[in-house]
Computed example of a mutant assay.
Amino acid sequence: MAHHKSAKKRILQTAVKTERNRYYRTRIKNITKAVHEAVAAADKAAATAAFATANKQIHSLVSKGFIKKTTAARKVSRLHKMVNAIEAA
């Protein structure tokens, strides 16, 4: 256990940041899973709606500084490609 005041504070800060990061990581997984499920069901309307939500949520995480802009662009691009593939099939 920490003996210094600053070390105790650092432990508390780490716990808070860990919880916040876990929440955001889970959020990204869930919103992408919704798009994947809609694409698997070949439901264009549901996939488009899920993609719009995912796009907004992922870019909001960029503004919070949780993920980089290029990472968000890559994730959104891959999801968009999947949604567009429904029409082709």
Rank of each mutant, 00 (worst) to 15 (best):
K33W: 04
H4V: 06
Y24S: 00
H80G: 15
N30P: 01
A45E: 14
E19Q: 15
R78C: 05
A88T: 15
R10I: 13
S6R: 14
F66P: 01
R25A: 15
K5E: 15
S63L: 09
F51D: 12
Q57W: 03
K69S: 13
V16S: 10
I67K: 04
D43V: 02
D43C: 02
V62Y: 01
A50D: 05
R74L: 11
T53S: 03
K56N: 06
A38Y: 05
A47R: 07
A85Y: 05
E19H: 04
A46H: 08
L79Q: 11
K68D: 10
I11S: 01
A7F: 03
H4P: 02
H59S: 07
R25G: 04
R20H: 06
S60T: 04
A73E: 12
K64M: 11
K8Y: 04
K81S: 05
I31L: 04
S6F: 07
K9N: 15
R22V: 13
A50L: 03
I28F: 11
R27W: 03
I11H: 12
K68F: 01
R25H: 07
A88L: 14
H36V: 12
L61Q: 08
A41N: 07
K5F: 09
K33A: 14
H4A: 13
T14D: 09
N84C: 12
L12M: 04
Q57C: 00
K8F: 02
V62W: 11
V83T: 13
I31G: 06
A49T: 10
T18K: 10
A54L: 02
A54V: 10
A72T: 02
Y24K: 04
K64W: 10
R20K: 10
E19P: 02
I31D: 04
T26R: 15
Y24N: 05
S77C: 04
Q13W: 00
T32M: 15
K5Q: 08
